[in-house]
Amino acid sequence: MTETALEATALGKRFGRKGGWALRDCAFRLPAGRVCAVVGPNGAGKSTLLALAAGLLAPTEGTVTVLGTHPGQARPRVGFVAQDKPLYHQLSIAEMLRVGADLNPGRWDAATAERIVAGGDLDPRKRIRALSGGQRTRVALALALGKRPELLLLDEPMADLDPLARHELMGVLMAQTAEYGTTIVMSSHVVAELEDSCDHLLLVGDGRIRLSGELDELLAAHTRVSVPAETDLAPHTVVESRGTGRQVSALIRPAGPLPGDWRTTAPSLEELVLSHLRSPEAPALTPAARTEELPA
């Protein structure tokens, strides 16, 4: 298995010659076997990033390397579920799965695909167009997992699902990564949705990577402090600070030991994400060059 599942170098994508940059100067590295959350507000560039990785879009500049190769070459080993869960509406579920078998000869795992569909109590003879949004998500996931991907890219996969189905399908995904070592990259703008299941984070804001790394490390690198208003926070990196009268509450990246009289708390993932999104000028923390190899 490849050590690096996904790596971007100076990656940028602009739509149209005069359009704005949907993504710019992105650099990150995702080790294989991780479950990575791609988080960011709507329109931040999450879908663009996933489409670039899936080989659906050509980058305007820079490169993205997937499973050690060009996204186009990695295509047979990558599963992708787009945000709007496109499926052939005129086909039945069973026919849709046969399409997966036709297009992935030698890789197709019919049993897995059928099991995922059966989990939703769906009649395979039912037409796709007659399915609800959540049911379509299930069929789309079945198609993506049926090809036994080494890397699974999911764009807002859980948005349409009821809590029960969400829980069950998350379980299916976790089992997949546990059993086959599948790397999963899933985007969401709902942070809470990902906190329990992910061990790696990519925070995308305004077309740039704001945070990237192992979740534990990113959380450990930040501290929430509460100090008197006049306190000088240097030399620590201040991500966000908000005054509440005489007190200032700030999220910082400590550059060294903190004074003992500062009140410190560990931030939650949600705090970390929101603070970075609220402060676009805060420096990014993207240890792209870091070559740590931590157990998941």
Binding site: P76, L87, L143, A144, K147
Partner: peptide, 14 residues
Amino acid sequence: ESGTARLAWTQGIS
């Protein structure tokens, strides 16, 4: 328009 072209492109054919 419906995105099924992308579905095909991620189902193993370029």
